[in-house]
Amino acid sequence: MVNLDELKKEAKRVLEDGKVKYVIGYVKSKASNMAAPAFVTDPEEIENLIWDPTCVQNLTKFIVDEKKRKAQQKKPDTRPVAVVSKGCDSRAINVLLQEKYIERDDVFILGVACEDLGVIDEKKLAQKLKGKRFGELTFDDKKNVVATTTDGTVKVPVKEVLAERCVECQANTPLIYDVFLGEEDRRKPDAPFASVEKMESLSNKERGAFWQEQLSKCVRCYACRSTCPMCYCDECVVDTINFAVTPDTTAQEKALRIKWIERASTKSENFGYHLVRAIHLVGRCIDCGECERVCPLDIPIRFLNKKLEKTAKELFDYEPGMDTEKPALVASFKDEDPEEFIR
């Protein structure tokens, strides 16, 4: 078990020592049952940090934000930021390191082990509670989630309401950290791609119909992109909304930015957006599942990334975020890469 006091102690120490600029961690949310990200600069506030299965967000996203912020500042504070990092989130840090987006010295990683649990899926919990409204969630030492509902408290084993990605988790223990908390228990799931396999077992037509329906819903709010730590480009190739214009930008560059995807949230443009996003995340997405969790339309976006994660593993034996020294999936090849599909 992760000792929360230990976590707080470590966080407080690095903050007080001035070793880090601030600590990114989780606190109780005032608005939601799930934890909220917190940016702690005052050592006194470290006390508010929590660690439990409501800590769903991938805080690596905020390391990206920090990097962007620093780029804007004239004389940035170059000290690292401390971040509480789950196993999956640490893989995202690895990808950022592999892609040289950040340097190892930019972060101080407070690695937390998920052990045999993970984070809960609020929707699954709601189903378990049969639609009863619930307030504060607490966790007992028997690994139950204790929900306060209108009918009193209900206990549900956390394992029964784990997020799908935690059921299929490939890294329940951080791969990279400065301080490690909890038990190292590198379990591997029995069926890491079970959900995708179910999709694959459908006929091509059925899958086509499924995605037609799902992707037609997309309103292109870009929440998936905004929450994704891998979507760190200043300008996304699919739109020109935030085209970074700097003094070196030529008129031609401005004029010729292509609209690979139109802004209109029509079905074909939505397909285009999600296909491009999936292919740009292959070998990079570490399945934190945040894109899908934040989607207001309940589009199962994670499937697309998971499918390619499976393909990369099966065809090329590549697992994202496991090795920071290797070249990226699409920036490497092996002589024996499969080519049965090629005529």
């Binding site: 040289k100 987006y101 480009c233 990226a328």
Partner: peptide, 8 residues
């Protein structure tokens, strides 16, 4: 402007 230095 667009390059992030990912090395790919």
């Amino acid at each position: 402007n667009l390059c992030t230095g990912c090395n790919m």
